[in-house]
Amino acid sequence: MKSYTIEEINEILKGEIIGNTTQKITAPEQLEMANISEISFIGNKKYEKLWATSKAGAAVVNKDISIEPGENRAFIKVKNADLAMSQVLELFAPPAPIFAVDIHPTAVIDQSATVCNGVRIGPGCYIGPKVVIGDNATIYPNVTIMDECTIGKNTTIWPGTVIRERCHIGNDCILHPNVTIGADGFGFRPDPERGLVKIPQIGNVIIGNSVEIGANSCVDRGKFSSTIVGDGCKVDNIVQIGHNCNIGKFCIIAGHSGLAGSITIGNGVIIGGNAAVKDHVTIGDGAIVGGGSGVIADIPAGKTVLGYPAVEARDALKQWAILKRLANESKK
Rank of each mutant, 00 (worst) to 15 (best):
L323V: 08
P300Q: 07
I121V: 09
P129A: 05
S66D: 12
L259E: 00
D110V: 02
D279R: 11
N178K: 06
Q30S: 14
I6Y: 06
T227Y: 02
V311K: 05
A260Q: 04
R221C: 07
G195S: 14
N209Q: 11
F99N: 00
F41L: 03
H280V: 02
R120L: 01
V78T: 07
I207R: 02
T264F: 07
H104T: 10
G43F: 15
G248N: 04
D110T: 08
P300N: 10
R189K: 10
S3M: 13
A113P: 13
P159S: 14
E16A: 08
A183N: 09
A297L: 04
A100I: 11
E11K: 06
Q240L: 03
A93Q: 13
E29C: 07
F92Q: 09
K303D: 05
Q23S: 04
K130H: 15
V269C: 03
E29Q: 08
D110G: 09
A34N: 05
G208M: 04
N237K: 04
E90K: 12
R325D: 13
G302E: 08
I17C: 14
V197F: 15
D102H: 02
A27K: 00
I247S: 00
Y47M: 01
C245K: 05
R314V: 12
T264Q: 15
L50N: 08
N142D: 10
E165I: 03
I252D: 02
K331F: 10
A297G: 00
L31T: 01
L50W: 05
T106W: 04
G118Q: 10
G152N: 06
V289D: 00
G222P: 01
V277F: 12
V119T: 10
I157K: 08
G128D: 05
I174P: 14
G208E: 07
I296L: 07
A81V: 10
S40N: 09
T5N: 11
T138Q: 09
N72K: 13
C233W: 10
P200I: 12
M33V: 05
G70N: 13
I169P: 02
G258D: 10
D236C: 06
V61F: 05
G160M: 05
Q111R: 15
I121Y: 06
K63S: 15
G284R: 04
P95Y: 10
D64E: 15
N136R: 11
A301C: 02
I169V: 10
T22H: 09
L50I: 06
G286V: 07
E38D: 09
L13G: 04
M1D: 02
S86K: 11
I139W: 03
G70K: 09
N10P: 01
A327K: 07
N267D: 15
G242N: 10
E16W: 07
K332N: 14
N35P: 01
G122T: 12
G203K: 01
I271H: 08
T180Q: 05
V269T: 03
I145F: 03
